[in-house]
């Protein structure tokens, strides 16, 4: 799916934010949409949050924050979570000034990928049939389907039509962490192809193309080949014409 192939982190601490104290008594985020605050918030986020939530806020060890607003949530709730931390998790409380937390909230909202339902060409019912015939082998929707690829149950809310188009036409352009393809050659010469879920200097954990969770000691492998290409086949124009793509996109758009 359209995650950036290269994850970037950023570290910086920004200019102090200036806002009248009274602004905070009114409720809501006084910085919403303010470009300077969003820039500062991005910097603060990079310094304090990116290690767990990823440089682009799309999640690493911590959750994807670009989908925070995918469900109805008030900015104050997001603010309160940053302020208080999440009990029982590694998400700490913060004692930074209110202005800085609101700037982070403004930044997160600015990168929120919640996409509005749009009137677009395509027949969702036909798209659903295609999905059920092909995509479901690897992708899961509402608990049904394969696990080789990302779960698409809410994909219509968190990805735009353009992003989805790119992922279908050129899936190798950007492969999400946890879905990178690898081919392992076992001691008996047999081969296992799958997605790398985890790896250290001594072992690798994959989900193979049959959906099995398999761990291997690297010392036991004859060969380990990391693939540039996604496990997902590319659906170019000759394989999926524009009308069919529109149908599929229409269906994906309903997954909200």
């Amino acid at each position: 799916m359209p995650m950036t192939r290269r994850r970037w982190t950023c570290v910086l601490v920004a200019a102090a934010l200036v806002a009248p104290a009274s602004a905070f008594a009114q409720g809501g985020n006084p910085y919403e949409g303010d470009p300077a605050a969003i820039r500062a918030g991005r910097a603060l986020f990079a310094n304090r949050c990116a290690e767990c939530h990823g440089a682009n806020a799309r999640g690493l060890n911590g959750p994807d924050l670009t989908v925070l607003w995918a469900r109805p949530v008030r900015d104050e709730r997001v603010f309160a979570t940053i302020r208080g931390g999440v009990s029982g998790s590694v998400m700490p409380a913060s004692s930074a000034p209110d202005q800085e937390l609101w700037a982070i909230v403004a930044y997160l909202k600015s990168v929120s990928t919640v996409s509005a339902a749009v009137d677009a060409p395509g027949d969702a019912a036909r798209g659903r049939e295609m999905f059920t015939a092909t995509c479901v082998r690897c992708h899961r929707v509402a608990g049904e389907g394969g696990t080789m690829g990302p779960d698409l149950s809410n994909i219509g809310r968190v990805r735009t039509r353009e992003q989805l188009t790119r992922s279908i036409r050129e899936p190798s352009a950007s492969v999400a962490a946890g879905f990178r393809a690898v081919t392992l050659t076992l001691p008996d010469g047999g081969q296992v192809r799958g997605a790398t879920k985890s790896e250290d200097a001594f072992s690798i954990q994959v989900v193979d193309t049959r959906g099995r969770l398999q761990g291997y000691s690297k010392a036991d492998l004859r060969e380990l080949v990391r693939e540039e290409r996604s496990l997902m086949p590319a659906f170019a124009e000759d394989r999926l014409n524009q009308a069919a793509l529109d149908d599929l996109l229409a269906y994906l758009g309903t997954l909200r």
Partner: peptide
């Protein structure tokens, strides 16, 4: 940077390619 006492004063951003 703003150079405010009590606030971090990094003076910029670093972008790191985590894949590399």
């Amino acid at each position: 940077p703003a150079s405010t006492p009590g606030r971090p004063n990094m003076g910029g951003v670093v972008w790191t390619d985590q894949e590399a």
